[in-house]
């Protein structure tokens, strides 16, 4: 690789990452600005953070969103794992194409369509069966599970597809029932995929504005809904403070996950080397 191409590569990287990170950095910097105007830097202050923590509406919405996200992520992980398992391991079965289509379509479906269609479903079932009596937390959770279970399905399916079936077959040959093969062999191996699926489902739910706005009812405003109604009126520094907290948490989470994975990789490599050495001796 000559110096000209590596210079070009470096400039691609610099430009790309500058584009990705300058807006985020500007959010963080101006969250510490004293002035309400983003234009002028008038000195360091943590005023907007204390204002944020005094804002009952935002805190309540954040707590609601976190609860919905946790329940959603758990439900989506269970359903998505089942769907991924069926698609990756059960060969051909009747309706496989439909299941595969239904579990990947929400990935690219415009949110306005998913939101509208689910709301109309809830209105229709409320009319016909009296359920759900009023919309709110439960309808948002159901809508989010439907959206995010496809992400889990795709992750689990591709993890299972890249996995050797011989371990599972060996367990079957040794007389384990399918359920216990799944619990004791498959589940431990795919657990990293389940964790990343859970986290992804959690994040998407925490972040969703459009679908939640459609299926929510009075009294259930999630964090994105509150942020959106504030942001529509213009820049407000306490939202910058909120953004900074979220960026910090996400960065911390990703760093921890990265370190854990790195350590696991190293441990695995060490184990493999030890095994090779004991083979040789």
């Amino acid at each position: 690789m000559n110096s000209k191409t590596s210079l070009a590569r470096l400039s691609f990287l610099l430009f790309g990452f500058a584009f990705l990170y300058i807006p985020i950095v500007s959010l963080v910097v101006y969250s510490f600005n004293e002035s309400r105007l983003v234009t002028v830097w008038s000195g360091f202050s943590t005023e907007w953070y204390s204002r944020l923590f005094d804002n009952e509406q935002i805190l309540e919405a954040a707590w609601l969103s976190l609860r919905i996200a946790a329940v959603n992520a758990t439900g989506a992980t269970i359903l998505g794992t089942l769907a991924g398992l069926a698609l990756a391991r059960f060969g051909r079965f009747r309706g496989r194409t439909l299941l595969s289509g239904m579990s990947t379509a929400p990935l690219v479906m415009p949110e306005v369509i998913t939101g509208l269609s689910l709301l109309l479903l809830f209105v229709a079932t409320e009319q016909a069966f009296g359920w759900p009596a009023g919309r709110g937390v439960s309808t948002i959770t159901i809508a989010h599970i439907t959206l995010t279970l496809s992400y889990v399905t795709v992750i689990v399916q591709s993890r299972l597809a890249s996995l050797d079936v011989s371990l599972e077959e060996a367990a079957m040959d040794l007389g384990a029932r399918p359920a216990s093969v799944f619990m004791r062999v498959t589940l431990p191996i795919i657990s990293p995929a389940l964790i990343s699926g859970w986290l992804l489902a959690f994040t998407i739910s925490l972040d969703d504005l459009v679908i939640a706005s459609f299926v929510s009812g009075p009294g259930a405003s999630t964090l994105p809904m509150v942020i959106f109604s504030k942001v529509r009126l213009g820049v407000s520094p306490d939202i910058n403070a909120l953004a900074t907290i979220m960026v910090a948490l996400v960065t911390l989470g990703v760093l921890i996950a990265g370190l854990v994975m790195l350590r696991r990789d190293r441990a695995r490599q060490r184990d493999m080397q030890m095994a090779l050495r004991s083979d040789a001796s």
Binding site: P23, S26, Y30, V38, D207, A243, V250
Partner: peptide, 18 residues
């Protein structure tokens, strides 16, 4: 991938200030 994990809404909001 990191920006993708932070809020979509807040990343769009950042551009208002810019």
């Amino acid at each position: 991938i990191l920006p993708f994990w932070t809020s979509f809404l807040l990343r769009v909001y950042a551009w208002i200030g810019i």
